[in-house]
């Protein structure tokens, strides 16, 4: 390298280099007599370091990171799949719920209709029986009224007979009284 000639001179002038330089006080970083040794050992150590990192350490760390990112991607995929499954389950549940609701409504409606029909029938039955009772009652009232009316005739005749007897003081002919009552009533 380019330092070699300079170094050759140096090493000639200071044959016991180390001690001579320390005493001489040359600034160590610029002391070219140490350059070959430093370059050689740097090449050896750095070369080995480079090879070690390239062959062993970096593939290993790269592998670790790759495995981890793969694993994370895989986990994310799995999570997405599970979410899909959960969504499907929720949809199925909603569907089930909707059909169940519809069914419940239908059953309720049917029950309501049945109850309504039953109530209607009952009402009609009750109404007809009431009508019958009403008719009966009306018939009886008419009967009673007729009886009462005929009773009213006899009572009026008796009363008229009594009043006339009181007023006139003589027995009145019964047939004449009933004819007069009949004429007044009609």
């Amino acid at each position: 390298m380019f330092v070699a000639p300079a170094f050759a001179q140096e090493s000639e002038t200071h044959s016991e280099t180390g001690v001579a330089h320390e005493a001489g006080g040359a600034f160590p970083p610029f002391d070219s007599s140490t350059y070959p040794s430093q370059i050689l050992w740097l090449a050896i150590t750095f070369g080995l370091f480079y090879l070690f990192l390239q062959k062993v350490v970096l593939p290993r760390i790269g592998g670790i990171l790759e495995v981890r990112s793969d694993r994370i991607a895989q986990d994310l995929d799995q999570a997405a799949r599970m979410k899909e499954e959960a969504d499907a389950a929720v949809a199925a549940y909603e569907q089930e719920l909707a059909t169940a609701k519809a069914k419940a409504n239908a059953i309720g409606q049917e029950a309501r209709d049945n109850a309504k029909a039953d109530a209607e029938v009952e009402r009609k039955r009750v109404e007809s029986s009431l009508d019958k009772k009403l008719a009966e009652a009306e018939a009886r009232i008419a009967l009673i009224k007729d009886a009462a009316m005929s009773d009213v005739g006899t009572i009026a005749e008796d009363t008229v007979g009594a009043i006339v007897q009181e007023l006139v003081g003589a027995k009145v002919d019964k047939s004449a009284v009933s004819a007069a009552v009949k004429a007044a009533r009609s």
């Binding site: 070699a4 170094f7 280099t17 140490t34 070959p36 040794s37 430093q38 050689l40 050992w41």
Partner: peptide, 8 residues
């Protein structure tokens, strides 16, 4: 050439 193993 001096290739000594040094403190460096």
């Amino acid at each position: 050439l001096d290739f000594s193993f040094t403190n460096s």
